[in-house]
């Protein structure tokens, strides 16, 4: 009887622990957050009341929410596109058979391995006026730009994007390199016989072959970047004057500065819904193309 059960439902007992853990630590908090978004929950108040769509109404008239939303979109689109472009260039470079390339492939991952908190602290020191590495370097090059970059209205946001690139491009590079190395040489040889040069080979052989990896990387990084909290929070906290304010930081500030967990949950719910729409749309498009 027991053997029969396992034969028929072999997968169920194996995946049940994972499903339960996911339910407890992912699904339940999501449901709890969703319910909270319809309340006036405040971390300091003992009583919580149902307020219907009040938080959502407030949210749509909240200028900081819209500012953070636009910044999150710009950050995600810009960072992911640039990461992909530089990642492909890096992968092509790493593919070359030149002396020391193996060592370079190992070293290049350092920025991805360093904890984000350490990266944020490191960059904050590097852009300090006076003793910051970047300012010293610029001074050496004759550029008068001795400023606290994270305190600059014009430089803070681009610097956040650079931080994302600095951390993620090597990951793209290594992942895409792995995909490129799986392409049989015969395909390049065939392309060469057909008269294709390096650029044509890239667009007709390399790019289609690494398409699936690109889809995976882009999907993951859209989710990561849109949800990324630590880089912005640890470097600028959303400032100066909201110039780097993004949705995850806004959620945090509402929850932990104002303690308005109900309102924070409504922002979190919107973020979740947006990302789910993106994810479903992306998968649909991918499946259609595959079909």
């Amino acid at each position: 009887m027991k053997g029969s059960f396992l034969r028929k439902n072999g997968a169920l007992p194996l995946i049940l622990p994972t499903l339960i853990i996911m339910a407890v630590f992912t699904v339940l908090p999501l449901i709890k957050g969703f319910i909270l978004s319809f309340t006036n929950a405040n971390l300091l108040n003992k009583s919580t009341a149902y307020v219907g769509l009040e938080n959502y109404k407030k949210l749509f008239t909240d200028p900081i929410f819209w500012l953070a939303f636009v910044h999150s979109l710009i950050l995600t689109v810009t960072a992911v596109i640039l990461e992909l472009v530089f990642g492909i260039i890096l992968a092509l470079a790493l593919k070359q058979k030149v002396p020391g390339i193996k060592l370079f492939r190992s070293v290049i991952m350092a920025s991805w391995v360093i904890p984000v908190a350490a990266t944020a602290v490191m960059f904050t020191f590097m852009v300090e006026p006076g003793y910051g590495y970047y300012n010293i370097l610029l001074k050496f090059l004759g550029v008068k730009a001795n400023t606290f970059w994270f305190g600059s209205l014009n430089l803070a946001f681009p610097l956040i994007i650079i931080l994302h690139l600095w951390r993620n491009v090597p990951f793209y590079g290594i992942a895409l390199l792995a995909a490129m190395q799986a392409i049989p040489d015969t395909q390049y040889e065939a392309a060469e016989i057909d008269g294709a040069g390096p650029i044509r080979s890239f667009f007709t052989v390399t790019l289609p072959s690494i398409r699936n990896m690109i889809i995976v990387m882009v999907t993951i990084h859209v989710l990561w970047t849109f949800n990324n909290f630590d880089m912005v929070y640890l470097t600028t906290g959303g400032g100066p004057v909201y110039s780097t304010q993004v949705l995850p930081v806004y959620v945090y500030q509402e929850a932990w500065t104002n303690y308005t967990t109900g309102y924070a949950s409504s922002i979190g719910t919107i973020m979740f819904v947006l990302l789910m729409f993106y994810f479903i749309a992306y998968i649909r498009v991918y499946q259609q193309q595959e079909g």
Binding site: N146, T147, F148, F150, S152, T236, G239, P240
Partner: peptide, 8 residues
């Protein structure tokens, strides 16, 4: 104050 220290 050093303007470069704004926001610090």
């Amino acid at each position: 104050i050093d303007p470069a220290e704004r926001g610090n």
